[in-house]
Design a protein around this nucleic acid. Sequence first.
DNA 1: CCACTGACGAGTG
DNA 2: GCACTCGCCAGTG
Length: 115
Amino acid sequence: MPEGDYERIYAVVRRIPKGRVATYGQVAELAGLPGHARQVGYALAAMSESSTVPWHRVINAQGAVSARGPHSGGAVTQRIRLEHEGVEFDARGRVSLKEFGWKGRANARGAKARE
DNA sequence: CCACTGACGAGTG
DNA sequence: GCACTCGCCAGTG
């Protein structure tokens, strides 16, 4: 089946810890596709909404959620879901990758780095 | 085969 | 920090 490579991307997204977000470039790199961030977004957009993949934890390198246009408030759903997991958004609808970015960054909130 | 589009990233001013 | 440009690959007509 032609979607073999997509499984790699889904596998990476699935292992994103709750309360954290990963960028397309990050997922692409971990999936074995360095520099192919675009392909990651394409793969996620191609999957069904009923998928068990936490796609809402994947955002762009600017810490902002990308809108899928024709979909019913897809970006809004993503934001709501992230907020529900403890991720904070600023007035512009952007997340601080400094605190919520995957890779156990400094964790300025005093939380301990895990994973 | 060529052109256009698209959930992006990095570099430059 | 923001706007613009170029580069990456896949899907569609």
